[in-house]
């Protein structure tokens, strides 16, 4: 059960139950869709960016607790970040979840709860979906971001 508690920490459960910034944004100027074909998790991400800084960010969609909480935490972390900082954060989180290298934990703040997912390889893609979608929105890819 201890491993499981690592995965379903209070923060994750809380963000799944009450996802932050969970709504459509009418005046977004960056948008991307994310889809995990294996499990059907699906997510739309909205960003309002002015002068290179993320002013507003929101999402909607349906997914498991891990993907919903990851997206919710991500929207909280992104507000006020520059595009460059957001991209750097994508790389850090992606590295944290998929690579066996030491990560600068302090820089991650609350996002550190996502580290527990690493012990559950089948669920890593749930956690990375929102981040792939962010990367896709920031790099203006037209096609939907996919975890595959």
């Amino acid at each position: 059960m201890s491993d499981l508690r690592e995965l379903y920490q209070e923060v994750i459960i809380d963000h799944n139950r009450n996802p932050r910034n969970f709504h459509k944004m009418q005046d977004a100027n960056k948008y991307a869709e994310g889809y995990n074909p294996l499990c059907g998790d699906q997510l739309n991400l909205f960003l309002k960016i002015a002068e290179d800084v993320i002013q507003e960010v929101s999402f909607e969609g349906s997914g498991c607790a891990i993907s919903t909480a990851s997206a919710s935490l991500m929207t909280e972390a992104l507000k006020g970040k520059t595009i460059q900082q957001a991209e750097a954060l994508f790389n850090t989180v992606h590295g944290l979840l998929t690579k066996d290298e030491a990560t600068d934990w302090d820089r991650l703040g609350k996002l550190v709860v996502l580290a527990g997912v690493k012990e559950f390889p089948a669920r890593v893609k749930c956690a990375t979906l929102a981040w792939h979608t962010l990367h896709s929105a920031l790099t203006n890819q037209v096609i939907a971001a996919s975890t595959e």
Binding site: L7, Y8, F120
Partner: peptide
């Protein structure tokens, strides 16, 4: 409102194997 994948992961931690997903029947 618990997502089937979360059910699957928790059951797996108890040694119980089930399938979660769309079962190739979208």
């Amino acid at each position: 409102k618990i997502h089937p994948h979360d059910i699957g992961t928790i059951l797996d931690s108890k040694g119980i194997a089930i399938r979660a997903g769309h079962h190739c029947a979208m």
